[in-house]
């Protein structure tokens, strides 16, 4: 009997270990489950200084191209953020005043908190053998600007001046493949983590800098932060380190935490906040504040 209990005691940790392994790994069926539905906004390409609202409202062809792309997303059961209503909402904001035109795109993306931007552009070509239309579709991730899909589509040559008809024809030739390529990149996100950007900076009265020794090993603060990001991401890229700033332009974060819950930018930001608040430089305990815009997290040491 004693031997039986000893054997059971010996086997118990193995059982616990086996449980941990099975819960921390995603099964293929779980991998196929959607955890988050990224927000997507389709908007027209516009040059610096152009009035984006006028561009869409005065040009029906632009609206046709945008609608055709949105229709393709709808056919996959996906709803996009309405660009025009976002612009109208922004009109009350200073961002649409003429002297701040260059910042309009950023303002719209940030105000909509959209994860993925799809830019559409068209070009009407007249020719002796008929007219045709070219559409350029570009999708990118808003925080890290990682390219997701790029396609150029051409309509058939027709003896027609009806640009919207040609636009519809041109979009239809490539939009399904455009979405398929995007889905391939989404599969990469499932495998290698979603994109985030991190910016650590200092308040003017913080009294520390990125070279100050912090943490248990008394390493420079920038290195302590890099080590934490390295341990809590699938991969990352540092854009630069100065005494005042550490910029991670790409951080690939798992889409799920250990409990299988969606790891959003706010929840990831909270983990960073907890870690930074646990740090100390000498006898001074560090305090931080965070700001999250879409998938970009700004952390300031107070």
């Amino acid at each position: 009997m004693k031997q039986f209990f000893l054997l059971m005691t010996g086997l118990l940790p193995l059982g616990v270990f086996a449980q941990q392994v099975t819960t921390s790994k995603e099964t293929p069926a779980e991998t196929r489950q959607l955890v988050t539905r990224p927000t997507i906004m389709v908007f027209p390409f516009f040059k610096e200084g152009e009035d984006i609202r006028k561009l869409v409202e005065s040009d029906v062809n632009n609206r046709v191209v945008i609608t055709k792309v949105k229709e393709a997303f709808d056919s996959r059961g996906y709803s996009t953020v309405d660009f025009l209503s976002k612009v109208r909402n922004l009109q009350t904001n200073d961002a649409l005043t003429s002297d701040k035109q260059t910042d309009v795109k950023t303002a719209i993306i940030q105000s909509s908190n959209t994860d993925i931007c799809v830019e559409v552009e068209y070009d009407f070509e007249k020719g002796s053998s008929g007219n045709r239309l070219k559409v350029i579709l570009t999708a990118y991730e808003s925080s890290a600007s990682a390219s997701l899909a790029n396609k150029i589509g051409f309509s058939r040559r027709m003896y027609s001046e009806d640009v919207s008809k040609l636009a519809s024809d041109a979009v239809e030739t490539v939009v399904a493949d455009f979405l398929n390529v995007m889905q391939e990149k989404f599969n990469d996100i499932v495998e290698n983590g979603k994109y985030m950007a991190l910016e650590f900076n200092l308040n003017s009265d913080s009294g520390v800098n990125m070279s100050s020794e912090a943490g248990k090993d008394n390493l420079p603060l920038s290195d302590v932060l890099e080590e934490w990001v390295g341990n809590n991401s699938k991969s990352y890229h540092i854009q630069g380190v100065t005494d005042a700033k550490v910029l991670f332009d790409v951080v690939r974060v798992p889409r799920m935490d250990a409990q299988g819950k969606s790891l959003t930018s706010t929840r990831y930001g909270l983990e960073i906040l907890k870690f930074c608040n646990s740090l100390a430089v000498g006898s001074k305990k560090l305090k931080v504040e965070r700001l999250i815009k879409g998938n970009t997290i700004y952390v300031s040491f107070k």
Binding site: R32, T36, F73, R76, F186, V190
Partner: peptide, 18 residues
């Protein structure tokens, strides 16, 4: 289109998104 939707519903392929 119907075939794709059927495969999505039965989790053979992922729905659009991640």
């Amino acid at each position: 289109d119907a075939f794709r939707r059927f495969m999505e519903q039965n989790q053979v392929i992922r729905k659009f998104g991640y």
